[in-house]
Design a binder for these strands. Structure first.
Length: 106
DNA sequence: AGATTGACCGTGT
DNA sequence: GACACGGCCAATC
């Protein structure tokens, strides 16, 4: 029986890996799915400290308003945006079109 | 063990 | 519609 924190962290990473290509999820959404709807901030911490972007597509995680926030790899948000465009995510100016590309969890 | 920070979110002015 | 403030959660120093 692990502490709640480890479960939360594990869930966040697991969920992040479940985000399909061409879709994005908000920090709050990941937090909610992980069991703490208010832990959006903590999710950001996990993404920043994420073990590996190959196992945790942190680039598919954006702010609730669709804006791209920090990125621990490449050139930061610039690289993140490029990757999302590569994935086929719809963009509106400098933000993601959540109406079209927000992850509709199964 | 205590205090501070941080890739956020919601509400108010 | 834009700017400012507070609140929550977990990790890090």
């Amino acid at each position: 029986m692990k502490t709640s924190t480890e479960t939360f962290t594990a869930k966040v990473y697991a969920i992040a890996q479940k985000i399909p290509v061409g879709k994005v999820a908000t920090y709050g959404q990941l937090a909610a799915l992980a069991g703490s709807p208010r832990a959006a901030r903590a999710v950001g911490e996990l993404m920043k400290k994420n073990p590996d972007r190959s196992v945790v597509p942190c680039h598919r995680v954006v702010a609730s308003n669709g804006a791209l926030t920090g990125y621990a790899f490449g050139s930061g948000v610039l690289t993140k945006k490029e990757i999302l465009l590569q994935e086929g995510v719809s963009f509106v100016g400098a933000k993601v079109d959540l109406k079209k590309s927000q992850w509709n969890r199964s």
